[in-house]
Design a protein around this nucleic acid. Structure first.
Lengths: 247, 247
DNA sequence: GATATACATATCATCCTACAACTCAATTAG
DNA sequence: CTAATTGAGTTGTAGGATGATATGTATATC
C-alpha cells in the first residue's frame, strides 16, 4: 500500500513529461511513421531541459518500439504495429468513453479466461481465490482495501488458467481500471453496493469450484457488466446487438 | 568489442543491455518486489559504463513500472501487477509451449472481437478488410508478403470493433506471433497450405459482411486453431470440448 | 567528364564533472 | 528528553567533451 501510494503519487519527472509530449504528438498524427524527430539538441532547447533529459525520454520511446534512433542520422517514428510494448495513457482514461472501451476489453478477456480457469483450476488455485473473496467480504464498504482484494480475486482466476500471458494481460487491464476508478471516485462518489458485488463474485467462485466453464463465463460476464454499471459506465452488450447469436 | 550488428534495427545499445540484465534479474526473482537496487554509481561501476547509461536503463524499467525511483533514497522493484506496460520477451517465444499460450490468448481476444466487428463494421471497414484479403489471395505461397496481408486482415477486423484498446492489444499479440513464426520457419519449414488459410479467412469475411456475430466468432475461432496447427502448435480448445472433463 | 578518395559536417552514443533536491540518521543545542 | 541542525548518501538535472557513424561536398585521379 505504501508502495502503491508512492506509485500513484509519483512526481512527474522531466524525462517523463518530454516522453509524454512526444508520445502524444506521435499518437495524434502530428508525427507520422517514418518522420524524423528534431535533433536532441533542438528538443533540449525547445523544452528548456538538458540533453540528458531528452535522451532518457527517447530511451523510453525507443524501448517501446515507438521510435528508432540511428546513430549519425536521427530518430524516426515507427509504425504502430512494430511496437514492442503496450502502454495506456492514464490521462486518457479520465474520459468515460475510453473507460467504457477498457471495460469491454476486460469483459472479453476475463469471460473466456474464467471458462478456462474452471476447466483447469487446481485446489491450490481455488484456495487462493477463496482467500481473496473472504478478504473482500470482510470489508464494509467498497474502498481501497476491498478493491485490492477484488482485483486480487480476478488476478488469481487469471493465474488459474495456467497461461502466464493471460495472467499478464488481465493484471494489466485490471490495474488500468483501478487507476481510472480512482479518478472516477474523485468526481462521482460511487454506490457502495458491496452485497451485490460480493454476490457476483460468489457466483463466479461457485462455478469455478463446480468446474463448470460455461457457468463461470456467464457469471464473469454478468459481473463485469455490473461492475461497469456501478462505476457509471454502461457497457454496450457484446453480442446481443442486433443479430443475436444463440450459441 | 563493439561489433556492428547488421540485424534489422536491433542495435544493442549499452542502456538496452543493462536494462535487459536488470530486467532478467527481476524476472528470475533475484530481486524481489520491494528490494532496493544498487545505487546508480555502483551499477555503473559493476557494468563498467557511465552513470548516464545506467540512468537511461533505469528510465526504461521505470517507464514500464518495473521499478520505482525515489529521489534521495534509491530505486525499488515493484510488484508485477503494478506495471504500466506489457512487454513480451521474444526469446521466450522460441519455446513452443509459450507459443501455444500466446495463440490461446489470441484466440480469446480475436474470437469475441470478430463478433463485435460483425455487429459494428461499416462499409469502409469491410472495404479495408476485403483489400487485405485480396492481397493475401494473390500470393502463391505463405511467406513474408502474404503474412503481412494476413496480419493486416486481422488488424482491420480489430479496428472494425471501434474499440482502440482492442485494436492495440490484437495488433500487439499478432506482431509477437509474427516474430515467433519467423523463428519457427527457420527450424521447421511450414506447410504452405495457402488454400486452406485463405478459405478460413473468406469464411470470416463472409460472416462480417452478413453482420452475423456468432458466425464470425466461430469462423475466427476455427481459423486461429487451424493457424496454430499449421505452425506446429496444437491448441488446447478453449471451451468447446472440455469433454476430457474428468478432472 | 566520370569515378573514387578525402574531408567536413551533422547526429547519435557515451563519458565526465558538477550541482540541486531530497531523505535519513547522527549530532547538537535547548 | 526534545527539537533543530548538520552531514552524508542518493537520485534528478545541467552542460560540455569525445567517439562513432552516416551523409554530402570538394578534390584528385584516370
Amino acid at each position: 500500500m505504501k508502495q502503491r501510494l508512492a506509485a500513484i503519487g509519483t512526481v512527474e519527472t522531466l524525462p517523463h513529461r518530454v516522453a509524454a509530449f512526444l508520445s502524444r504528438e506521435i499518437e495524434s498524427g502530428d508525427l507520422n511513421p517514418g518522420a524524423r524527430l528534431p535533433t536532441e539538441q533542438e528538443l533540449s532547447e525547445k523544452f528548456g531541459v538538458s540533453r540528458n533529459v531528452v535522451r532518457e525520454a527517447i530511451a523510453q520511446l525507443r524501448a517501446d518500439g515507438m521510435i528508432e534512433a540511428r546513430q549519425g542520422i536521427g530518430a524516426f517514428v515507427l509504425a504502430p504495429e512494430q511496437r514492442a510494448a503496450i502502454r495506456i495513457d492514464r490521462e486518457a482514461l479520465k474520459d468515460t468513453h475510453n473507460m467504457e472501451r477498457l471495460f469491454e476489453l476486460r469483459c472479453i478477456l476475463e469471460a473466456e479466461s474464467a471458462a478456462l480457469a474452471a476447466a483447469r483450476r487446481s485446489q491450490e488455485h481455488l484456495d487462493a481465490i477463496k482467500a481473496a473473496l473472504d478478504r473482500m467480504s470482510g470489508e464494509e464498504r467498497w474502498e481501497d482495501g476491498s478493491i485490492d482484494a477484488d482485483l486480487l480475486f480476478h488476478r488469481e482466476i487469471a493465474r488459474a488458467t495456467g497461461n502466464s500471458y493471460i495472467h499478464t494481460f488481465i493484471s494489466f487491464v485490471c490495474e488500468q481500471i483501478r487507476q481510472s476508478i480512482h479518478y472516477a471516485r474523485l468526481t462521482n462518489p460511487l454506490h457502495d453496493l458491496v452485497e451485490v458485488n460480493v454476490g457476483e463474485h460468489v457466483r463466479i467462485y461457485d462455478a469455478l469450484v463446480a468446474g463448470n466453464p460455461a457457468a463461470a463465463e456467464a457469471a464473469m460476464r454478468a459481473h463485469i457488466i455490473g461492475a461497469a454499471n456501478r462505476v457509471g459506465v454502461r457497457l454496450p452488450s457484446a453480442r446481443g446487438d442486433h443479430t443475436d447469436g444463440a450459441r
